[in-house]
Design a protein around this nucleic acid. Sequence first.
DNA 1: CGGAGAGTTGTTAAC
DNA 2: AGTTAACAACTCTCC
Length: 716
Amino acid sequence: MARSYVTPGASKIAESRVSISTRNVHRRDSGVRDVVSATALQPSTCLLPKVNRIEHPICDFYTSTMPAPRVVYWFRTDLRLHDSPALQAALDLKPECLYPIWTWDPHYVYRARVGVNRWQFLLDCQNDLSKGITKLNGKSKLFVLREAPQTLFPKLFRSWRITHLVFEKDTDAYAKDRDREVVKIAQEAGVEVVMRSGRTLWDSDEIVKAHGGKPTMSITQVQAVGAKLGPIAKPILAPTSLPDPGDMKLDFAQEQPGQVPDVNAKYRKDEERSYDTGIAGPLGNFSVPTLEELGLKPATTPHRGGESIALAMLDTIIANEDYTATFEKPKTAPTAFEPQATTLMSPYLHFGAISVRLIYHRVEEVIKKYKGKASQPPTSLTGQLLFRDMYFAAQAALGYRFGQTYNNDHCRFVPWHLPSKIDEKTGLITGEHDINDASAEEMFVRWREGRTGFPWIDALMRQLKHEGWIHHLGRHAVACFLTRGGCYVSWERGAEVFEEWLVDHEAASNIGNWQWLSCTAFYAQFYRCYSPIAFPKKWDQEGAFVRRFVPELRSLPAKYIYEPWKAPLQDQRAAGVLIKGKGDPEHQQKEGDYALYPKPMFDFAERRDICIQGLKKAYRVGMFGNHQKVLDGTWREMFDDDAEGPTKGRKGGPGGTTAEQQADGLEEAKDDAPVTPKRGVKRGPPSPKATVSSKRAKGQETIDGAFKKMKRKGKK
DNA sequence: CGGAGAGTTGTTAAC
DNA sequence: AGTTAACAACTCTCC
């Protein structure tokens, strides 16, 4: 439930302020919030119940002698002015002054994986928001303060004589930790914190609470819990005016962060100067930083951020009523580009440049006109938003554990290649991985760089790297290929690459979808495996998408476009390309006049069979990330040597990592020598006899059976 | 016209 | 929001 944090030392004041917050909560929960202007609700008419004043006459004393609120509105994941419950709450305080600020958090600059395209999108959103603020008040804008909130706020509160800190609730694991710390700092400074949920359809914490404290693992669970919580709040109009900011003296020193480690160093061409020019930046005016200030290379994405672009895009989508009302995700082409087949609202949602509830209600209005002819969740547009809430609530319930297999009771344990290293003190993944198999590492790198030799996969990965966005089903294809449908590499590796490159990277959705595609959570039908040949053929017979993103293959006849290695040499020559090598960028990319495109890095059918056998085994073993054997490294006992992945021997490291070479390594080798083929030796497809058991893992049979029965029923 | 054979569509089961 | 093979049932083409 939305609530405000109050200063313990100011209980009388706190009481009156609690009622401010409670009033807002009632207004929201009763579903009659509707559109409220910034000044519509006057404190004198509806704020404090009369009884409060009679019983606590001292309140009047305090409220009349208290300085008028001086409010910091802290923008984070809500770079917009429309439909912001938190901004509304700030304005409801009727502040004397309002400082719209962004804190330039070194965690984001140096520690989180943020590629240059997402930087660009963020700066676009900030610039657009800043302009929007200035339109409402010529003296105001988005003031970017170059320091971590944890160290900045104590100084800022004092210097700017702040009484309130207001922000939208963030449910990401790191953000929760940061905000807990900031709330404590505010309490110590006597600053009241007002936090409002606004990022999702429903408050994710309330979803979790109403779901018995458990993560939501299916769309029907979200719908059931959502029904309990009541209707999705109607959007609030953007304010028509904003208070002035107060004085902004900086009579304190800036604390500069350490720049090491800088996980984004590879994107910088120059020195990173975010913090060198002081808290107010190079011009001393709290400007939105530039890519140059960050020392970053230019962005390559064609997608541009900002609330105004987002609202215009939404208008265009809604104007196409057929598209809006009959949208079915599985029927949108992942091969479509210019324009793409889906809405591309996701990056704007990520930065809060558009409100998810605005999209929801505008789509619902169109759907009403279509009566029975509109599409339904989960495939409809609103269904996509429900999935988003599902992942947010799952993350809210599990915290950091959601983002990893280790110690995650909702993530199935599979002995993937390249597992995450674990910090055994914190129980969290370190961001590094264990290269337990050189050939798996090579597969991973070739996948990441778009040179697997499968044009469909390579085209998608190149689009991802260059443009920062690919279609949802394209993400399915590359994610399945890296994990359970090809490379048998940990989903955590893929999630890291998406985190770095996607302009719409949303931790909750990214993690959730990687678990979905790797069949470790949310989804279990691992034999439903995307073919890098058959799947794109269904959508794009001519291969226009591949020709666009893999120009080496531009002139290849359509019949070879998804499997160029089958093209006779003379056809290859006629198309100006030779299919050979590994596409290693270290080596020449041309041979004479011919472009080079790599041979496929494996036989897909063979790898698919190996992966399915591996998943079958993992499902039969049935361990989750919190299993004692996963935690203590004895998980290997459960996997025989037929299983794909680092399963040799009896002992491993925690969470699927390779055990350090210790004395018992010798013993292991002895035990397994007679039956174990050498690691790295290419294996053929397993013979049916070699299969441990052909019995299908329980769950799967029933899920698929039930699905088919449902489908039949639906047809009748 | 009838029938062989090729080609298409739809269903199912299995991975 | 998977792929494939097998098979039945059907259409189409040709002689």
